[in-house]
């Protein structure tokens, strides 16, 4: 059943996406390849909408992906699936595990996980490039836009709106 599968997949993301919202992007990328729930194009649109609306980005993306897959119930189930592992883990930490967080062992595990998360994000990024930067005109646009983003620190919402306006004006 689709709802169980949605719940299971998002529960897994909630359990393995360590480091916050944007880290869920590579996992959603995996989902778009594994199932026909949403296309990669739709995933990029989801990321854009999630970054420019209120609320935690990871939650926004889960809601969007779930909604895209199975309507309103899908959105609710995917979000609950994503949230449940944190809810359980954080309650356990508050109750008993407090002394195990930030121990040398946990720090070693985190040290090893961070580079992997980085590589996963890079992989998703390459995938998005192949999808969105499809001709020379767009390559030029991407390069100029990158220089802008890299040197002028503005909020992501500002840049998403700007890229949309430029997309219309320059007929990207």
């Amino acid at each position: 059943m689709i709802y169980w599968l949605l719940f299971y997949e998002f529960f897994k993301i909630g359990l393995f996406a360590i480091g916050g919202g944007p880290v869920t992007i590579p996992f959603l990328f995996d989902l778009s390849e594994k199932y026909s729930w949403f296309s990669k194009e739709q995933l990029v649109d989801m990321i854009a909408v999630s970054q420019s609306t209120p609320g935690p980005i990871g939650i926004n993306m889960a809601t969007y992906a779930g909604f895209q897959t199975a309507g309103v119930s899908g959105g609710i189930i995917a979000t609950l699936g994503l949230v449940l592992p944190s809810l359980i883990i954080v309650i356990l930490i508050s109750k008993i595990l407090r002394k195990y967080v930030n121990t040398p062992c946990w720090c070693e595990v985190m040290m090893a996980i961070r580079p992997v998360v980085l590589m996963l994000m890079l992989y998703a990024c390459v995938g998005l490039f192949e999808l969105s930067v499809t001709n020379l005109y767009r390559v030029c646009f991407a390069v100029v836009f990158f220089i802008l983003v890299y040197f002028y620190k503005k909020s992501p919402i500002f840049y998403i709106i700007l890229s949309g306006i430029l997309g219309v004006l320059l007929k990207i």
Partner: peptide, 24 residues
């Protein structure tokens, strides 16, 4: 118009993600 806007936004999102990867 919406199509063009989203073509631009998709590139914007990709670039923002790359920027995030670099700062990470």
């Amino acid at each position: 118009i919406i199509e063009n806007a989203f073509n631009g936004i998709r590139i914007g999102v990709t670039v923002l993600l790359l920027n995030e990867v670099i700062s990470l």
